[in-house]
Amino acid sequence: MEKELKLMKGNEAIAEAAIRYGADAYFGYPITPQSEVIEYFMEQNPIERTGMVVLQAESEVAAINMVYGAAACGMAAMTSSSSPGFSLKQEGLSYIAGAELPCLVLNVVRGGPGLGTIQPSQSDYFQSTKGGGHGDYRLIVLAPASVQEMYDFVQIGFDLAFKYRNPVLILSDGIIGQMMEKVEIGPQRVRRTMDEVIKQCPWATTGKTANRERNIITSLDLVASRQEEFNRKLVKKYDTIREKEVRCECINCDDADYVFVAYGTSSRLCMKSMDLLRKEGYKVGLVRPITFEDYRWSRRESKGIPHYRNEHRTDGRRRNARSKRQAPS
């Protein structure tokens, strides 16, 4: 099949990707610079295209709780917002993480604190990596650096969310959301039937049948010892994710005397700086974390250069050689 190339904004690409992935629902509330997500959905009329539900909620809080409800039924549901609106979703995210449900959320970051600005920023890094809401939980965070990755990470994100029954965050920013670049569009996938949902999500509240116990979705457990047990289970899950799902892109790291470390938009600036410095003879490399669960640095003793542990896989388009050096643990 011939590749379908389109020029799209990051915000549009993510919406198209969700429709093509066969997502079941999107609940959103507009805020600059990500309003194009819901605008694109509305324009595409996904209920006609695939049967996907798209709804503008009355607030960000309502939207994330609608995701909570849909996810409890085993649906592939998503929402999106930008920094101030994303802060409002933290309570809901904490509940979803506590109830161990899969969902996909997008934050097109703008400057803060408070209402801040509508211009792009990377200032929600700590909120994204430390959980964001109350209680000990972690999101799986994917940071795209291009419109193509905005598109690609929807599939990766939903797959990870269902694999680990954990919310996945796509951490973007105003530049990637607003910018148009070329995007290679994948084929349309058919949405799961209810039977397939029940098979994939035996834990979901899909209606009790005679041959199984009731499924209960809750983040509440008043028995302290059970809650402790549950927290230990979560930690184990997060450890597994750290071990198995770390992604990063390493460029020119093999012979580097210096490396930039940057994600998203900033990594593109660093890549340009790296190219310019290389032309002047400086051995500069770039490490671009795509997931944020873990940084495991070591120091290369001779030169004192931080070195990224490098067994990680990447799915991005890679340039030049990747470092194969294993850091001492």
Binding site: L5, L7, T32, P33, I118, G174, I175, Q178, M179, M180, E181, K182
Partner: peptide
């Protein structure tokens, strides 16, 4: 213009000034 460049097989970026 950007689409024309895309059709010609080039790398493209299109970035609007976005404001209120």
């Amino acid at each position: 213009l950007a689409y024309s460049g895309l059709m010609q097989g080039q790398e493209i970026a299109w970035m609007p000034s976005y404001g209120p």
